[in-house]
Design a binder for these strands. Structure first.
Length: 408
RNA sequence: CGGGCUGUCGUAUACCGGUAGUACGCGUGCUUUGGGAGCACGUAGACUGGGUUCAAUUCCCAGCAGCCCGACCA
């Protein structure tokens, strides 16, 4: 992509109405633009990042047998009345049409996916099933904050699994938990798994995937030696500084974190609410055991920025970067050939061919945070200068060496 | 939803009860070109509604909007 065509370009200053790092950097660098509190437009650069994160999540969901679907955001009131959510869930956005019909905007999708999947499930042979979607969610938060970390409208992957019994659910639960850790790791994040309360509809314990960041909204206690981690909401005996009861070696530390994913054991609640059954191995009617698995894609977007930046701007991991290479042409250099060749080689490249000062190009490149910066100028001659974002040193190399280097 | 703070060119800001200033951006021209260039000229602004006042962008009230703290948060 030519940088001169990027009409939603970086700003000179930080926005005055943003406080958190992710929002300041993302607005200034031209990834997102705020429409209102907790609601952002994704600009060309931001949409690329969103798609990258989405794709990592999609690949891992496909790998555990998830089938992707796309369900409506506009829901009939009846489904929500059926499960009790219409009255109990206070973050549910409710709308009234001009004919006085009432609707809900999806804040989660059990009310829709349960009848959908069970319409094709007749016997235990049709199970297990897992379907997921990557779509917008709406929650009427009293206070929206922290940029992309807590929006009233946000992009989320939500998967729902259906099983013939608890054992099969628990088997799959572990499979998905492992896939989740892989997703966060691919995105350059270290996620801790905590036990948390199951929310208003479930007595069961759920698991939350937390990434340490001061911009988060949860407090967790974790062991510095083993994997033990718990949300302070449900921590009872454990105290900061105490010895870890699980491994006996480590010390418990308290930290601020942001929840980037969760998994819930839904039990048979939704099957019962809709009275949808299948014929089990004994030939009897049975309710499916369900699981629900969420990952906040837009929140991950913000969390990556919170975790990976310096005083000059964002530092994208290549798995989430809008482009792999930022090609910068300075006076006396010609990047058009390299641009064409890189594109032909399938490399995603942003080409800065604008007629602006070198300093401005460098500053914007640091701000945007593309992993590899490649400069061509009078000085580089037949070669190119490669610098990795986040590293100080640069090297003069040939085009062939460049291709080699960036494909590592 | 309770509390606090804030609304001034596109952006970031300054001053002020009586002509609203600066920087950046943007436009034109020339000079520049390896870390947000220089000069010249030009462009563009007081959230909305009431009130006080001879006069309100400024003071007061309300509304709207944003941020922060709290509560809330499948």
């Amino acid at each position: 992509m030519l940088q001169s065509k990027l009409f939603l370009k970086p700003l000179r200053d930080y926005p005055k109405d943003e406080e958190t790092i992710n929002a300041k950097l993302l607005v200034r660098a031209g990834f997102v633009e705020k429409l209102m509190a907790g609601v952002y437009s994704y600009l060309p650069l931001g949409l690329r990042v969103l798609r990258k994160i989405e794709q990592v999540v999609r690949e891992e969901m496909d790998a555990v047998g998830g089938e992707e679907v796309l369900m409506p955001v506009l829901h009939p009131k009846a489904n929500w009345v059926q499960t009790g959510g219409w009255d109990k869930i206070d973050v549910l956005f409710k709308l009234t049409s001009r004919t006085e019909k009432e609707y809900a905007l999806g804040q989660s999708e059990e009310e829709i996916v349960t009848p959908l999947v069970m319409s094709r499930v007749h016997t235990y042979k049709d199970l297990p099933r897992a379907v997921y979607q990557i779509h917008w969610k709406f929650r009427d938060e009293l206070r929206s904050k922290s940029g992309l970390l807590r929006g009233r409208e946000f992009f989320m992957k939500d998967m729902y699994s259906f099983h013939e019994n608890q054992e099969d659910f628990e088997r799959y639960y572990e499979v998905v938990k492992a896939a989740y850790l892989k997703i966060f790791s691919r995105l350059g994040l270290t996620a801790k798994v905590t036990e948390a309360s199951g929310g208003s509809f479930s007595e069961k314990i759920s698991y939350e995937f937390m990434v340490l960041t001061d911009a988060g909204e949860d407090d967790i206690l974790y062991c510095d030696a083993c994997a033990f981690c718990v949300n302070t909401e449900i921590a009872k005996e454990e105290k900061t500084g105490a010895k870890c009861a699980k491994c006996g070696k480590g010390t418990l530390l308290k930290a601020r974190a942001s929840e980037v994913g969760n998994v819930f054991d839904l039990g048979t609640k939704y099957g019962k609410d809709f009275d949808l059954t299948f014929i089990d191995r004994e030939g009897k009617k049975s309710y499916p055991v369900m699981g629900c698995y969420g990952i906040g894609i837009s929140r991950l977007f913000g969390v990556i920025v919170e975790r990976s930046h310096d005083e000059k701007g964002i530092i994208w991991p290549r798995s989430a970067a809008p482009f792999l290479v930022h090609l910068i042409e300075l006076s006396g250099g010609n990047g058009s050939e390299i641009y064409k060749n890189l594109q032909a080689a399938g490399v995603e490249v942003l080409y800065d061919e604008r007629d602006v000062s070198a300093g401005e190009k460098f500053s914007e490149a640091d701000l945007i945070g593309i992993p590899y910066r490649v400069v061509v100028s009078e000085k580089t001659g037949e070669r190119v200068e490669l610098k990795e974002r986040g590293k100080k040193e640069s090297t003069l190399i040939t085009y062939e060496e460049l291709l080699q280097k960036i494909s590592e």
